[in-house]
Design a binder for these strands. Structure first.
Length: 469
RNA sequence: GCCCCCAUCGUCUAGAGGCCUAGGACACCACCCUUUCAAGGUGGCGGCACGGGUUCGAAUCCCGUUGGGGGUGCCA
């Protein structure tokens, strides 16, 4: 009987959750979904100096935002690597007892010195036959056997490493604590992991870890190393230099569905001529063997385009709900009391086709929820530059005082004034728009004017006229 | 330096020897629509890194060159 596949995602909580990590998590999740297997989440929190519980929560939040939820039957964990320290040490002792590892008392400086003198890089196996026992300051190193190690990779095929190029790597630090290479394998073994899908930066670790698996008496898992995500300089995305925090994108108003879809088009593509597809289609079609082998540029512009697409695809109701966090509460640029949900609901269809990020929404409607709009000076100056600007605006204002207050009627008024001065509506409305909204661009004008009401609009026009003189 | 991986429009990709005059998407440009800005529609720009093979035939297979990337920690 073949075992159900057990995939795993093993991030370390050392900072904001990375988009590259999100993609790796998605791969593992989809694979678990496809196969009826498990997605095991393991937090690798063994680097005390860089760990912080807040990051662990961030990982959990981000995953569930992406639909990778602990309540799902495919989800297992989270497990914490730090809780398994005893098992790691036990495994290390076993390797030592078997003769697959040995202790070494050389300091990093001494190793460097030897390396320099011999002209060969890395550790030279100095303590291999010195029969040292454990002791403070002594590290335990794996005795890399002669020969070669072949890694079967689901995306790259067969990759062969000459063991002579792999130094006797450290298993236990001088203080007795296990390093990643060991802890990672021991946890995979004890958690019955069958498939390791991770970023390409781990490919050089694969032969080492495979040797540990074997030495521990286990069949290595199936490996898959997916290409890394890079920035415009084609360097691996880094927390220091690049905008990589999933949380940040979420706060800007990137939709989870858009993020998932976009991430999945990096290094892979669904069938057909459309990249924007339901997650179900991706889940059905994704296949490791068809993942590209080269790094992919994380293009924020394209992400935004995907997001705009997803925003437009929402029903108006969904869109309104999605906007709420940016309209009420701390993120809103106006006081909660002055926000009018009914007014926004009227405007919603008009702004829906005009935003790429949800955070762009407030600035399109803020003029509706303030006493007077914030005037953009450059826009104002430009709109009132023509000699006809003030005069026509006065005519419009006077007509607005008595005309029917509907979008069509208001439009007819402005058109009529324009006709008198041989000006097109497009030009005519510029001063009016700046007077009412404070800006030169925005959603269609006459609907919000109606929403604002006659009194408020006349007040704004007068204020603008006054500012002009 | 050494080890490993990779190479199709600017970017993300489709392409599994003839379906390729290389398809789509983002970006960009033009036009249409239009109440500014968007959205939408139509069209355009733009690519198989190079050199050798193999083959009747190569973007696809092989070798080399060049170029990129990853790794090279008592980080993960």
């Amino acid at each position: 009987m073949t075992q159900r596949p057990r995939y795993r995602f093993a991030p370390s909580p050392t900072g904001f959750f990375h988009v590259g990590g999100a993609r790796t998590a998605l791969y593992n999740w989809i694979l678990a979904l496809q196969t009826g297997g498990k997605f095991v989440l393991r937090i690798e929190d063994t680097d005390d100096s860089r760990n912080n519980p807040q990051w662990t929560q961030g990982i959990l939040d981000a995953l569930s935002w992406l639909g990778i939820d602990p309540s799902d039957s495919h989800f297992e964990g989270p497990f914490f690597q730090s809780a398994n320290a005893a098992l790691h040490v036990e495994a290390a002792e076993k390797l030592f007892a078997q003769g697959d590892a040995y202790y070494c008392d050389l300091t990093s400086e001494e190793i460097q010195k030897r390396s320099k003198e011999s002209g060969k890089p890395g550790y030279d196996g100095f303590s291999r036959d010195r029969n040292l026992g454990p002791g403070s300051g002594r590290v335990l190193r794996f005795k890399v056997p002669a020969g070669s190690t072949t890694v079967q990779d689901e995306v790259r095929g067969t990759v062969e490493f000459d063991n002579a190029t792999i130094e006797d790597f450290v298993l236990l630090r001088g203080n007795g604590s296990p390093v990643f290479l060991l802890a990672n394998v021991v946890d995979d073994v004890t958690q019955d992991i069958t498939h390791v899908v991770r970023a390409e930066e781990h490919l050089p670790n694969a032969p080492k870890q495979q040797m540990i698996w074997r030495a521990l008496g286990h069949q290595p898992p199936s490996w898959a190393h997916v290409p890394v995500l890079v920035n415009e300089q084609r360097k691996k995305l880094s927390k220091r230099r690049d905008k990589v925090a999933v949380e940040q994108y979420r706060e800007e108003g990137i939709l989870a569905a858009a993020m998932k879809n976009y991430l999945m088009t990096l290094g892979w593509a669904p069938t057909g001529d459309t990249e924007i597809v339901p997650f179900e289609k991706i889940t059905a079609e994704f296949d490791l063997s068809s993942v590209n082998h080269s790094p992919a540029f994380f293009d924020i512009v394209k992400l935004h385009s995907f997001n705009a697409d997803y925003i437009r695809a929402m029903s108006v109701g969904e869109f309104i709900d999605a906007c709420l966090p940016w309209l009420t509460g701390a993120k809103a640029p106006w006081s909660t009391a002055s926000f009018d949900a009914k007014v926004f609901a009227e405007m919603a269809p008009l702004v829906q086709t005009r935003v790429q990020l949800l955070q762009d929404v407030p600035s399109m409607v803020d003029f509706l929820f303030c006493d007077l709009p914030t005037i953009d000076d450059a826009a104002f100056t430009k709109a009132f530059a023509p000699e006809w600007a003030s005069a026509t605006l006065i005519e419009i204002r006077d007509a607005f005082k008595t005309c029917e207050f509907t979008p069509d009627a208001l439009k007819a008024v402005v058109e009529a004034v324009g006709e008198k001065h041989s000006l097109k509506l497009g030009k005519m409305q510029a001063p009016l728009r700046v007077a009412v909204t404070g800006r030169s661009v925005g959603p269609p004008l006459f609907e919000p004017i109606v929403l604002l009401g006659r009194e408020a609009v006349l007040k704004r026009i007068d204020a603008a006229l006054k500012k002009q003189t």
